[in-house]
Amino acid sequence: MVTRRRAGLLRGTVYRVFYRLPRKMQRFLARRVSPKYILGAVILLFDADGERLLMLRQPPGFGWGLPAGLIDRGEAPAHAAVRELREETGLSVELKPANPSAVVHVGGRWVDMVFTARVDAETHEPSVDGAEVLDARWHRLDDLPPLTPASAKLLSHYGIGPYSEALGEPVHD
């Protein structure tokens, strides 16, 4: 059995050797032993009154979700959110971080950076391509359509949707 002192000495030796390696080798090793995370950008786009939320129906069409997508390597999360919103809905909107601004999903391997905005729904009508997004509509927060499980779970962090009862009052924008 390794004592606590011996484990500390061993760990210290490993770190000293690691930090003497060339920078490229350090990065290579760190990427091989570090956990991998998928980073996504999600947008909570509310109407001006905060009573409706823009929802999307995407293939295969089994529920409604939020405008969202993966963050490209080296891309700022805010830029990814703006890009995804524009690609999926044709809308260009100034976004700000939601509160909470990051949601770590069960299993800890997926992290969503969440952004929000309020816009006039009458002047911000989404347009969809029919391929990546089948439909985009404004839905009342108290009458949401059937949601994808991922969207329902994410919205619960903001006191919205079918899983929000335990959280109490909505905390959105």
Rank of each mutant, 00 (worst) to 15 (best):
P67M: 12
P67F: 02
A68K: 15
G69Y: 06
L70P: 06
D72M: 13
R73G: 08
R73I: 11
R73L: 11
E75L: 09
E75R: 08
A76P: 06
P77Y: 10
A78Y: 01
A78V: 13
H79G: 11
A80T: 02
A81T: 11
E84F: 05
E87N: 08
T89D: 00
T89I: 01
G90K: 04
L91S: 10
L91H: 04
L91R: 05
L91D: 06
S92V: 10
S92Q: 14
E94G: 11
E94W: 04
E94A: 14
L95M: 08
L95Y: 04
P97H: 02
P100S: 11
S101M: 08
S101W: 14
S101C: 02
S101D: 15
A102N: 09
A102W: 02
A102D: 05
V103K: 13
V103H: 08
V104Y: 07
V104E: 14
H105L: 13
V106W: 02
V106N: 02
G107E: 01
G108H: 08
G108I: 09
R109Y: 06
R109I: 07
V111T: 10
D112W: 08
D112Q: 02
M113S: 10
M113A: 12
V114D: 04
F115Q: 01
R118T: 03
R118N: 07
V119Q: 02
D120H: 10
D120I: 06
D120Q: 12
A121G: 06
T123K: 13
E125L: 15
E125P: 00
P126H: 06
P126I: 02
P126W: 04
D129K: 03
G130N: 10
A131Q: 12
A131C: 01
A131F: 09
E132S: 14
E132T: 13
V133I: 12
V133Q: 03
D135H: 06
D135C: 03
R137E: 15
H139P: 04
H139L: 00
R140S: 14
R140W: 08
D142W: 04
